Amino acid sequence: MFLSTSRTRKLHEPRNVWHSSWWSLKFIVFIVSVLVPFFFPPALIQLYGEVARVGAGIFLLLQLVSVIQFISWWNKYWMPDEKMKQICSLGLFTSTIFYIASFCGIGLMYFLYVPKLRCVLNIFFISWTLILLIVMMVVSLHSKVNRGLLSSGIMASYVVFLCWSAIRSEPATEKCCAQKQGSGTSDWITILSFLIAICAVVMATFSTGIDSQSFQFRKDEAKEEDDIPYKYGFFHIIFSLGAMYFAMLFISWNLNNSATKWSMDVGWTSTWVKIINEWLAASIYLWTLISPVVRQTKVRNHEEAVQANGSAIP
């Protein structure tokens, strides 16, 4: 799909019709693509697994950028304005809800996943997440940044979710893992978290694939009426990377792992991938807050240096 749609520019092109319709033929192609890999040699599957591991990591990074772009848009839409007092109050209420949910999530994780003081790793994960929440809140409220609480509140909830997902991926044999009980309740929680993960990844894939503008270095190109609404090639590349991410979820990022019942996305590799993803998300978000201030300072220093050099010339 990428090769056949990557150079599409206008809506009247045949490749646009191929991208947007021909569902019967694409369904046949899909069925064939599902059945053919059963006849591939194991070495080829192993090679794809190595490629998929890298592609899944790239997907996580692109997903982070897309999520942060969406949060920034949401925050700008509800920025304080005298003519939009109702929207501002709604933004304040929403940010409060997000922060309450975030801190409640932190407390719940302490309660569920730190049954003993010997659970040092879980204490570190949760405590560091709490520190990230406070740092994001302080930076966003700083007088030089002044981004408000909405964007940091949404990001705080996202970071807490990533931390919870990481701890949930710890092996069930661990003493600090709340899902080690072989009860039906744990099975239902696993199924529910799996469905939530499916929906989240599908939504992230759609939004990231359509949001190609966030990954362009030049954004001043004028669009015409007959231009395609988004980059089709980028859309299909994101879906291929999303498929690689799903492949890693099913095998817990371990190519030598044999999946057992309710063990999807369970293992120390999955845990550390999600924790690193959480730290990267917080780091990228903090950089988006700080970078305008840093650039403004550099520009001001450059202008002052130019003025000083100009005044020094006789």
Rank of each mutant, 00 (worst) to 15 (best):
T8E: 06
H12G: 14
H19S: 07
H19F: 14
W23I: 14
I31V: 05
S33K: 01
S33P: 07
V34M: 02
F40H: 08
L47S: 15
A52C: 09
A52V: 06
I58G: 04
S66R: 03
S66N: 07
W74C: 04
K76S: 12
P80L: 07
P80Q: 04
K83L: 10
M84D: 05
C88G: 13
S89E: 14
L90R: 02
L92D: 15
I100V: 15
G105W: 00
Y113A: 05
L117H: 03
L117A: 12
L117I: 09
V120M: 04
F124K: 01
T129P: 10
L130A: 15
V135I: 14
M137F: 13
V139I: 15
S143M: 08
L149I: 15
L149H: 13
L150V: 12
S151Y: 11
A156C: 13
C163F: 09
W164N: 02
R168N: 02
A172K: 13
T173R: 10
E174M: 14
S183H: 04
W188H: 12
W188M: 10
T190C: 08
I191W: 12
C199V: 05
V202C: 02
T205Q: 00
T205L: 00
T208W: 08
S212H: 06
S212F: 05
S214Y: 00
Q216D: 00
Q216K: 09
E221C: 02
E221V: 15
E225V: 08
Y230D: 02
K231Q: 11
G233N: 12
G233I: 07
F235W: 12
I238M: 04
Y245I: 06
M248K: 03
N254R: 05
L255V: 10
S258G: 06
K261R: 13
V266E: 02
W268T: 12
W268F: 15
T269K: 07
K274M: 03
A281G: 12
I284T: 08
I284A: 04
Y285E: 01
W287M: 11
S291E: 09
S291F: 10
S291N: 14
P292S: 11
Q296M: 11
K298T: 06
R300P: 02
N301L: 13
H302I: 12
A305N: 13
V306Q: 13
